[in-house]
Design a protein around this nucleic acid. Structure first.
Lengths: 328, 328
DNA sequence: CTGAAAGCGCTAACAC
DNA sequence: GTGTTAGCGCTTTCAG
């Protein structure tokens, strides 16, 4: 009933524990004869090494903790998927915690992660709480922020300002002069602030007038409501989810896209290419972000120290059908 | 540099290891004086219990392994999120593996999970490989299948046949007589088979003619292609992702929804309520599924044995704007 | 090349 | 109430 252990294998193959351990790990060359005997015993017993014991004695794990704001957002689903894939390739297993952007949930999970002695932490969207950085520092567990920037951690994300500027420039080139920024509850606070600020700057740069920003209630739109967006002709949404809801809300107000209004999203969710509305959006290089994020993290896990590295990736404007000429 | 352990705390507070252990676990009533002394020492040292050691000695973990086919699919993203949330509430941490429906990836991850001695496994979409069930049985690790059915596991999912029947009935009532089933690479094999078979039955039941089924290349559609769907007026898609792509493909062929063609999806992804196209779909009760799935699993983890329980939930038809009167 | 021995950090009887 | 004592299953020197 109880699982066979390394001693059972040792007994059955007539060698010592350490020899069994050696063949399991492929360590110090074991003589071929012994090796096969041990392997036979392992197979017969259905032995499976106990990673917990190994982790205890080695004082390190190959488990990574992952924080994500909202797995229901395909952008993050995709990001987690890619991150997990690379982690797995590198022999790491991933634990995830969906925080819903809540600070409490974050602290609660972090205790679990820390007790389980994760080798490192990836924050795909963090609450941005400065206490977090400090905590992780005192606990000295490596951490990386992915898809956002934070000077107190290693990080990789896109050039947000550039991305938003791309969106505004596109709108401006199409002739739109009155632009509005739209966000929603489906956008992380910090990200929202950065993008909104970038929007303000870009508007000035491109000579556009900033209309009153809007906070869209996506769930209400989902439920059939038709909130009225500001009287702009060009809209920059804080992310794709918001953009899609915005297009819908505009439609319900009789302002169709791209004829009566133009909308640009941010993220580059695959789905937005479909979905009737081909959303014009600022795409983030997901694959590269996931890969780079993992690399940064594993470097730290491997003990590399030095100043934080903040990697900035290039966003890419993908023009589809929610943007068109304005104010002709 | 090295983390404080329970002995450090013991030394600092002048008691024995076990007493410290007792206060940590809130076990055998400890005298108030000692308790506060110990707690003070814990705080001063920044001590954090080592879960690995605890798991080793207790011979059990509070970690759950989660297999998911595609986290990029919001349906599964949402499901994982809900499952993880409930797991966390119950004191369990979740490890995830995105399998992409690949058998290899599944086996590779399962080894990792088993070595880490997960308390249980949740398969949100499994490869359906019969060897898996057998393996998990011999390893005697509890497992539950969520959002699908498998007689060899505890499971919870919707009544697929009923769901598809709802879709076909809806189409039939709208006057559609020639129906086609459409799937894609974004649908799990087994799920596809079940839904396709249900489609065949439902067509007979509702007196509809089955046109040739189609396998849609969603990525091609994403890339701008316009494959030609069969000459039906009513379509049942294997899932929402496929349905959305189908609506797009139909549109590119000049067959607009719902005027020239009607499309019903399956899953009930929140996004589909938005997205220009308000997709008519068969919605699955995600929240209930996640909750029930976890309950089934935790019951097994707690040692309950008995025959497999296969719970079937009711799907719900959500009528939106991709379906309309046909063949008037 | 193989074995013996000493823990990793903690829990769980069982004495005191 | 609190301390002592065994381990949990494995890795890792260090001898042989």
């Amino acid at each position: 009933m109880t699982r066979p252990t390394i001693v059972d294998v040792a007994a059955r193959s007539g060698v010592s524990k350490s020899t069994v351990s050696n063949v399991i790990r492929g360590a110090p060359p074991v003589s071929p004869g012994v090796r096969t005997r041990v392997q036979a015993a392992i197979a017969e017993l259905g032995y499976r090494p106990n990673g917990i014991a190994r982790q205890l004695v080695q004082r390190r794990t190959s488990t990574l903790g992952l924080f994500v704001g909202d797995l229901g957002n395909p952008f993050y689903g995709e990001l987690v998927k890619l991150f997990e894939r690379h982690a797995h390739t590198n022999g790491f297993t991933t634990m995830v915690s969906n925080t819903d952007g809540s600070r409490e949930r974050e602290t609660a999970s972090i205790d679990g992660f820390l007790e389980r002695r994760v080798a490192g932490l990836a924050l795909l969207q963090s609450s941005g709480d400065p206490g977090l950085a400090e905590l992780l520092r005192t606990e000295s567990v490596p951490a990386v922020v992915v898809s956002s920037h934070d000077p107190s951690f290693d990080s990789v994300g896109v050039d947000e300002e550039k991305g938003v500027s791309l969106a505004v420039q596109h709108l401006a080139e199409l002739g739109h002069r009155r632009l509005a920024y739209v966000t929603s509850g489906y956008v992380e606070d910090r990200t929202n602030r950065v993008r909104h600020a970038s929007f303000a700057i870009a508007c000035v740069e491109h000579g556009c007038e900033q209309m009153e920003p809007m906070h869209l209630d996506v769930d209400a739109v989902l439920a059939g409501a038709a909130p009225a967006p500001p009287g702009a002709t060009g809209f920059v949404a804080a992310n794709d989810l918001t953009a899609i809801a915005l297009v819908e809300a505009l439609g319900r107000q009789g302002r169709s896209t791209p004829n009566e209004a133009s909308v640009v999203g941010f993220d580059g969710i695959a789905l937005t290419a479909l979905a009737g509305v081909g959303l014009t959006t600022v795409a983030q290089p997901l694959e590269e972000m996931a890969r780079t994020g993992l690399e940064l993290l594993l470097d730290r896990v491997a003990g590399e120290d030095g100043p934080c590295r903040n990697i900035v990736l290039e966003p890419r404007l993908v023009v589809r059908t929610t943007t068109g000429r304005g104010e002709r």
